[in-house]
Design a protein around this nucleic acid. Structure first.
Length: 281
DNA sequence: ATGACATGATAAA
DNA sequence: TTATCCTGTCATA
């Protein structure tokens, strides 16, 4: 479930529970064993994230660069660590230092490697602005989008354009701004881009707080509309993401889906017309 | 039980 | 463009 908000949340959680503590580092699965041995017994200074990248900062300029990919998980728990479940690539344990025992298990990550601060800088440098970073400057994103013929739905998935946006935020933010995913980037007006960015800043910050992606406005919540919640489980309230063949909450049209940038995207054909309205004066 | 699919990205073809 | 990583959830049986 990893878009940018998930990593930001994880970084905060890991910092809160493990920062400043001597941690035991192991790799029950074995694929991170050599690196784990090097880090074992050293102090975790803190964790940080940019886009979908997570960085665990240890003493002596050692950083673990983690990317969860599509189905990686990093489970943080309190109390003594349980017997490993599944393929635990990296396990962090803090115990016996007077504070509450805590552990964290990394599973299924697409990337987990020991790197240098210089490497971190290089990774971050390649990313576009992250709406979750305070003070992030959207200007580079605007430059790239406004000069590109690529579809805006594709540009939003490009981490070099904007970092941290994934398939849910892409579909949802385009719906909220009535933009068809196939609209070429260069057809957007500057004001539209500014509004899109500002919306991402608020939407994703909300995602960090709540721990899930909710994008429907007050008037379209299940309570407001008298409809059942989407899952009942976890999976926030959304307008179009994975709602193909179902009626749009705003206009009732049937939500459509198509592949874009290697992933399925979703949109409402009436709320998000492909052609710019040409109406008026 | 079993299988499809997924909030991602990269390497190979 | 396709395969892969190899977890977790949900639908179907």
């Amino acid at each position: 479930m990893p878009e940018g908000h998930t990593l930001r949340r994880l970084a905060d959680e890991l910092t809160g529970v493990l920062a400043g503590r001597t941690v035991g580092v192991t790799s029950p699965q074995g694929r991170f064993a050599a690196e784990a041995a090097l880090l074992d017994g050293t102090v975790l200074q803190g964790a940080d994230s940019t886009g979908k990248h997570l960085f665990l900062e240890f003493d002596a300029d050692r950083v673990v660069h983690v990317h969860l990919g599509l189905y990686g998980t990093f489970a943080v728990g309190s109390g003594p660590a349980p017997a490993p479940v599944g393929q635990v690539r990296m396990r962090l344990v803090a115990d016996g230092d007077g504070r509450a025992p805590a552990y964290a298990d990394l599973r299924g990550a697409t990337r987990c490697e020991l790197v240098t601060p210089a490497h971190v800088a290089a990774v971050v440098d390649k990313l576009g602005p992250d709406p979750l970073r305070p003070g992030a400057d959207p200007a580079p994103a605007w430059r790239r989008i406004s000069t590109s013929s690529r579809p805006v739905g594709e540009l939003l998935m490009d981490q070099q354009v904007i970092a941290g946006v994934g398939n849910v935020y892409r579909a949802e933010v385009l719906f909220r701004h009535r933009l068809h995913p196939l609209r070429p980037g260069r057809t957007l007006r500057r004001g539209q881009l500014q509004a899109l960015w500002q919306d991402l800043v608020e939407l994703m910050a909300d995602g960090v707080r709540v721990g899930r992606i909710d994008t429907v406005r007050a008037e379209h919540t299940p309570e407001a509309m008298g409809r059942p919640p989407r899952t009942g489980g976890r999976g926030g309230e959304v307008y179009v993401y994975r709602r193909h063949d179902q009626p749009c909450y705003v206009c009732g049209s049937t939500i459509r889906t198509a592949e874009l940038a290697g992933r399925n995207t979703y949109w409402c054909p009436r709320c998000q017309p492909i052609f710019r309205s040409r109406a008026k004066s």
